[in-house]
């Protein structure tokens, strides 16, 4: 099932609106004063969690594509990745503005002294070049291979994001653990593919001119 171009445009538009929904609900909750006794904490926390969720959803695109054969979903990945960045920026803004109220010395001290803020900040800074090279023009200019290796930075970014959450909680690590397990699965499946690929290449390396042979290929090395 591959959607036609107009269908894909509609899907992209729907996805865009869906991605805005968490922010909209948060705004509505703020207006209705239903975010609890500490709305600033609730906003900062929610924006941070959505950043992490969007990172994981973005990372889930490729495995989903491989296992379902829905190759077209890769065309939704840019939107998801950019929303991860947007929520990350909003998360930082809520910390800088709502939480610290532009107390720059305190913010600088936090970033340098608090490991959980250091890693969160590092993750966001690492997202900047990825967001900046998300256009088709940038992909063409960098070349697919370079672009791809740059965008593999999402792996350490997501790891730093999980660590940021893990180090923040006081004692109950259930939630950061859930995110970390999902991330481990998403990265684990990639390592598995890579290992498969390595084995395939290794097996092929001893048969350098495979296409030339006709008939049955006899393996002379066993693994």
């Amino acid at each position: 099932m591959t959607p036609s171009n107009p269908q894909l445009t509609a899907i992209k538009a729907a996805l865009f609106l869906a991605c805005l929904l968490p922010a909209g609900l948060l705004w509505q909750g703020f207006e209705a004063d239903s975010l609890g006794a500490n709305p600033i904490e609730a906003i900062t926390r929610s924006l941070g969690e959505w950043t992490l969720r969007f990172l994981l959803i973005t990372l889930a695109v490729t495995p989903l594509r491989k296992y379902t054969g829905w190759h077209w979903i890769v065309r939704l990945r840019r939107t998801l990745g950019l929303f991860a960045f947007a929520y990350g920026v909003a998360h930082l803004m809520s910390y800088v503005w709502l939480d610290q109220f532009f107390d720059w010395p305190a913010i600088a001290k936090d970033i340098l002294k608090r490991p959980f803020i250091t890693v969160g900040f590092a993750a966001l800074v690492l997202m900047i070049p990825l967001a900046a090279t998300s256009s088709n023009f940038a992909i063409r200019r960098l070349g697919g291979r370079k672009w791809q290796s740059l965008h593999r930075a999402i792996y350490p970014i997501a790891m730093l994001g999980c660590l940021h959450f893990w180090w923040l909680v006081k004692k109950d690590i259930t939630e950061p653990l859930v995110y970390s397990v999902i991330l481990a699965a998403l990265l684990g499946v990639r390592m598995w593919w890579r290992e498969q690929e390595r084995r395939r290449q290794l097996a092929g390396a001893y048969l350098p001119q495979t296409p030339k042979f006709k008939g049955k290929v006899i393996k002379i090395f066993s693994e």
Partner: peptide
């Protein structure tokens, strides 16, 4: 004396905007 992971210099009084 800071908590090892965060500063104890300021606090948010619940219901107030700035710390």
């Amino acid at each position: 004396v800071d908590h090892p992971r965060w500063s104890q210099a300021t606090e948010r009084r619940i219901g107030e905007f700035t710390k």
